[in-house]
């Protein structure tokens, strides 16, 4: 198994000085290609900081982060933007769609930033929306769709430019149980199609559906197990 994510001795300290908060405390972690990982922790455990670190949205105070063998822990803003664009598909709890754009336009955005031409962009965005079952919602704006549909648009956006990693932050946190099930089903399918999926959650019910479960607490990894109850759908 190839190593995709290698985190070595990473710490993140907010407000350095007297009132400093150690959100991550010397964390080391390796995730290989085609893994399905859940990172579970209570709020304040440092899981969001870890997610930001993994997603190249934040830089560590100390330690190293290698993504695809490349040191991404101390890059410029623009380099980080490019890495996020190429390597990572984000699925957020609050969907984070742009309200003024249609579903299709939202899905096209990362492709625009990558410089993909109009025709190819259309093709990829349409394929991504089709694969999450939104053939009929392409011209709808986010506020014309249900939460589950919005999250599916967000997933389509995350997979449109075919990044190796899907990073999902509480993907079902804002959804009812029926929609949750649907979203998890899609996420599992994406994993089975060959992507690396990392889910950050506080919900053991969600974490139980992953193949590998990493528990984090007080900015440190408490356990890292292969889920004995994992079952392929």
């Amino acid at each position: 198994m190839k190593k995709l994510v290698v985190i070595k001795d990473v710490s993140k300290i907010y407000n350095p000085g007297e009132n400093e908060v150690r959100a991550l405390n010397h964390v080391s972690l390796t995730i290989g290609e085609r893994e399905f990982v859940a990172i579970i922790g209570q709020s304040g455990s440092g899981k969001s900081t870890l997610m930001n670190m993994l997603g190249c949205l934040d830089t560590p105070t100390s330690g190293k982060y290698y993504l695809h063998g490349q040191d991404v822990s101390h890059m410029t803003d623009d380099e980080q933007s490019d890495i996020r664009n190429k390597e990572i598909g984000f699925i957020f709890q609050g969907f984070n769609l742009i309200q003024s754009l249609t579903a299709l336009e939202n899905v096209e955005l990362p492709l625009i930033y990558r410089g993909v031409g109009k025709k190819e962009r259309d093709r990829l965005a349409n394929a991504a929306l089709n694969s999450v079952g939104l053939e009929k919602r392409k011209t709808h704006k986010p506020n014309e769709m249900s939460g589950g549909q919005q999250q599916r648009v967000a997933i389509a956006r995350a997979i449109a430019q075919a990044p190796p990693i899907l990073l999902a932050d509480e993907p079902t946190g804002n959804l009812d149980s029926a929609s949750s099930k649907e979203i998890m089903k899609i996420i599992k399918r994406l994993y089975s199609e060959g992507r690396t999926v990392i889910i950050i959650t506080h919900d053991p019910g969600i974490a139980q559906q992953a193949k590998r479960i990493i528990t984090i607490s007080d900015g440190m990894i408490k356990s890292d197990i292969i889920n004995p109850d994992y079952k392929e759908d």
């Binding site: 623009d78 984000f90 742009i98 309200q99």
Partner: peptide, 13 residues
Amino acid sequence: REIGIRKSIGART
């Protein structure tokens, strides 16, 4: 927030 979303999916400065 929109700016944050755009940057998170790869918009450069």
